[in-house]
Design a protein around this nucleic acid. Structure first.
Lengths: 251, 251
DNA sequence: TCGGCTGAGGGTACTGAGTGTCGCATCCTC
DNA sequence: GAGGATGCGACACTCAGTACCCTCAGCCGA
């Protein structure tokens, strides 16, 4: 109700003279969407309520769906900049988790607005599809960053894609549960918990440890021969598995 | 070019008298899409070429985008049935990986068609958005199954969502790389490799295998203590990994 | 002061996707 | 063969999105 509407207020340097007409369109659109539904509201209804010409709507928003996500473009730009500003000193998985937290911050900045939008996107298939494409762009940004960091590693792009998907899924799991509870409670803590699960699973030190392995003498017992693998306890698990695959001669 | 077009040929019991008009629409649509592009082709063009009435197009396909994915609805039904037919004896993560392989099988059944469609979806934003919503439904099916299997566990829904996303990402990573190489090579092997990575990460069986492992006497060398793992050579890799995780005392 | 330039916004008309409705033909059943 | 169900075509309509052109304000150099 009394929620203020986000326009483009990203962390960009210049406020850039935000046009009041854009905010008027968002406000009018949400009023009508909540009153009579998204599909029952035409663009003409919105521009009539906002008091602007129909053509102006499409000057500010490429499509009717865009007006529901007026702040994601800026948030995506922030995330891209955040990742681009990363250095080799940052642990990659932790870095993409931090990038995901930028999205949460945007939602948490305006709980009432976010909850309203969540209810809307849940019941309008068209909006859900649009949201998927937005989420997909976030995921691609994370994956591209990880691909760069994992370049050269075996299965680097696979690892990058899987971890990006896991981060997004964990983030959305916590975010949606927060939105479903009407935005009460600590969203940041919930997302931290969810992302910790992903970090716990995937975050491994980048430097390769001294790992020694070798098949010991085979002793054909009753069930086949035996493999003995010796490894440092603090070796990254995936390295151990890699060695295991080599030893076992399996893909 | 000479590719046959899939209609709904899922593994349903009855062939169910597949309507030739549907196949005609798909064939006509793809001919025109490849000739002059998706957006440059109107529904009127398609129905004119197929020789049917315009209204019939929307009887078979809810939208113009649907005609590009004529077989996904059936595949999704197959996957849902596959998961519904699962029992407690199936390891959950392995089960969703097998479910994902159903999708790959659909793509691999018709490589030429799949490659054409991939090229189309890559360059048409509207189709990409539509594909995302299709993939999302697969992912939700996997996640719902896992949520059921993980019910009661701490963070069960989180684990379910993350693993479902990881499976889909791994599957798509391998699938897209196969499609990008024009459908040559063994798609099944590529997907198996990608899914093995996910299984390796997440699969945790309930029953203990015939696998013996144990940390040998620690010998604190210059880099930390050492783990010795002994395993049958024919033991499943993920089982070995599970034991490793236990030994290493990591999540 | 004048004339032209530019850029934001308004107005109109058009294309094309998707829907509702009606009428007609065919087929199946009793 | 009557009656109902189903499948298809034809027409009309709504609405999102686009192209084109208009106005008007501000701003410039001459």
């Amino acid at each position: 109700m009394g929620a203020t509407f986000p326009s483009m207020s990203s962390s960009s340097a210049v406020p850039a003279a935000k046009p009041p007409i854009r905010d008027a369109l968002v406000a009018a659109a949400f009023r009508l969407f909540l009153e009579r539904g998204f599909e029952q509201t035409t663009v003409d209804d919105i521009v009539a309520l906002a008091g602007v010409g129909r053509r102006s709507f499409f000057r500010y928003f490429p499509s009717k769906e865009d007006v529901v996500f007026p702040d994601h473009e800026g948030c995506l730009a922030d995330m891209t900049a955040f990742l681009a500003a990363s250095g080799p000193e940052h642990e990659p998985v932790r870095r993409v988790c931090d990038a995901a937290r930028l999205v949460l911050r945007m939602y948490a900045e305006n709980p009432a607005f976010s909850v309203q939008r969540y209810r809307l996107t849940r019941q309008v298939p068209g909006l859900r599809a649009y949201e998927l494409s937005v989420v997909w762009r976030y995921e691609r940004a994370l994956a591209e960053y990880l691909r760069g960091r994992f370049a050269g590693r075996p299965d680097g792009t696979l690892r990058a894609d899987v971890i990006a998907a896991a981060v997004v899924a964990a983030h959305n799991n916590a975010l949606r549960s927060w939105l479903r509870s009407d935005g009460v409670g600590d969203a940041g803590a919930a997302v931290d918990h969810a992302l910790a699960y992903v970090q716990m699973t995937y975050a491994r030190p980048a430097d390769a440890p001294a790992l020694w392995s070798g098949p010991a003498g085979a002793e054909p017992g009753p069930g086949g021969d035996v493999v003995v693998l010796v490894s440092r306890r603090d070796a990254p698990l995936w390295r151990v598995v890699q060695e295991l695959e080599t030893v076992l001669d399996r893909p």
